[in-house]
Design a protein around this nucleic acid. Structure first.
Lengths: 116, 116
DNA sequence: TGCGTATATAAGTATATGATTATATAATGA
DNA sequence: TCATTATATAATCATATACTTATATACGCA
């Protein structure tokens, strides 16, 4: 229903915001709001070790903010739009710079993973 | 200009969100979005020691998210609506439960500080 | 001036966090 | 089946965080 705002308890909201209060994880969520991504793409995008990327994604997954799907060797992550805090997160993301160019640049470098 | 959304860099946004990723500070900012408050009111509202409250407020002040004014013995805090990330913070707060009842309850218990 | 109240700051400490390194698991293809 | 690639997890460690206690500062009032 348009006009209805989904409310989140302060305690719940602060847990989500603590997760997003890390530039890597916030960047990941911003990227995922454009498109699904897999771990090796994040490794490239953030110039960060694979275990580090996996651990950040795990934290996001543990609270249910992202979901994963395996496709062949790759595990793709996406935002869980049914999460109770998703509406709040979405209004947040509106204030962040568009991340599409980074995905495009990745694609041009031949490092974008796509499964059909 | 309506329709224009103020953008915040991911690094800046994550710093703000890290601060708001603590239930005490998020609660404080939510309260302050209703009305100015002083330290002793937060001590009562959050049932927390005075130094702890002061330290949380200092972090919020250090990034410029809140401002202070001394009035007599008391130092009142308020949200800095000119902060570059304020629009983002404001859209966040919309998703949190209304805090007015807590201020009203404080007033009824005679613990609300007001200076004229 | 001296006392009480409000607040800030400093020091200390236990816990949380984010990175690294090493290792385990799972899928692909020769 | 074996090597390679992608990912997860565990262990470790340095740093950050949030609280406590103790103390300093500032104001109001008798």
């Amino acid at each position: 229903m348009s006009g209805t705002i989904s409310l989140v308890e302060i305690e719940t909201a602060s847990k989500i915001l603590k997760l997003l209060g890390d530039k890597t994880r916030l960047g990941m969520v911003a990227m995922l709001s454009e498109d699904e991504c897999c771990v090796c793409e994040f490794v490239e995008l953030f110039q960060m070790s694979q275990p580090s990327v996996s651990q950040h994604l795990r934290k996001l997954r543990d609270v249910g903010l992202v979901e994963e799907t395996r496709r062949g060797q790759w595990i793709f992550y996406r935002i869980n739009t049914s999460h109770e805090a998703y509406p709040m997160v979405q209004t947040l993301l509106v204030h962040l710079p568009d991340q599409r160019s980074k995905l495009i640049e990745l694609e041009q470098r031949g490092l974008r993973v796509s499964c059909d």
